[in-house]
Computed example of a mutant assay.
Amino acid sequence: MTIREIAKMANVSPATVSLVINNRPGVSESKRQEIIALLNKLNYTKGKRGNTNISTPRSILFLKYIKTGFLVEENAGFISKILDAVEQECSKLSYTLRIQVEKKSLADAINTLDVSHLDGLLVIGTEIDPSEYDILHKIKVPYVVIDNSMPNFSCHSITMANEEMVHSAVTLLASLGDGPIGYIHSQFDAQNFTERSNGFFSSIAELGRETCKEFYYLLEPTLKGAYLGMKQYIKQGATFPSLIFADNDTLAIGGMRALTEAGYKIPDDIQIVGFDDVYLSATSSPPLTTLHVQRTMIGCQAVRMLHDVISQGSTGDIKVKIRSGLVYRESTKEIPR
Rank of each mutant, 00 (worst) to 15 (best):
H137N: 15
Y143G: 07
S157D: 03
I158W: 00
D178G: 15
V141K: 10
E164W: 12
M160K: 11
V115C: 13
N152I: 11
E127V: 01
H167T: 14
L121E: 05
H156A: 08
H137L: 15
S149L: 14
G177E: 04
A174D: 15
L121H: 04
A169T: 04
P130A: 10
I124A: 07
G182P: 01
G120S: 08
V115Q: 03
I158R: 06
N148I: 06
Y183I: 03
Y133L: 05
G120A: 03
C155V: 09
I181E: 06
Y143N: 02
D147I: 03
D147H: 10
G177M: 05
V145F: 07
S149R: 14
T171V: 15
G182I: 06
S116R: 00
A174H: 15
K140E: 12
D114V: 06
D134G: 14
S175F: 09
D178S: 15
I146N: 03
S116N: 01
V170W: 00
G120N: 08
L122H: 09
V115H: 07
Y143P: 08
P142L: 08
T126L: 11
V145G: 06
V144S: 03
P180E: 12
P151A: 07
A161L: 13
K138W: 10
P180T: 10
I184S: 04
G182D: 06
L172K: 14
S175P: 05
A169V: 08
S149P: 12
T126S: 14
S149G: 12
V141M: 05
S154V: 12
V166T: 06
I128D: 02
S116W: 05
F153W: 07
H117C: 12
N152L: 14
S116L: 05
P180N: 07
H117P: 00
L121D: 00
I184C: 00
P180Q: 07
I146S: 04
H167W: 13
Y183L: 11
P151N: 10
M160D: 11
L113V: 01
G182W: 07
I139L: 02
V170H: 01
V170R: 01
P130S: 12
L118H: 02
D119V: 01
V141W: 05
H137T: 15
S149D: 13
E163K: 14
P180C: 00
I146H: 05
S154G: 10
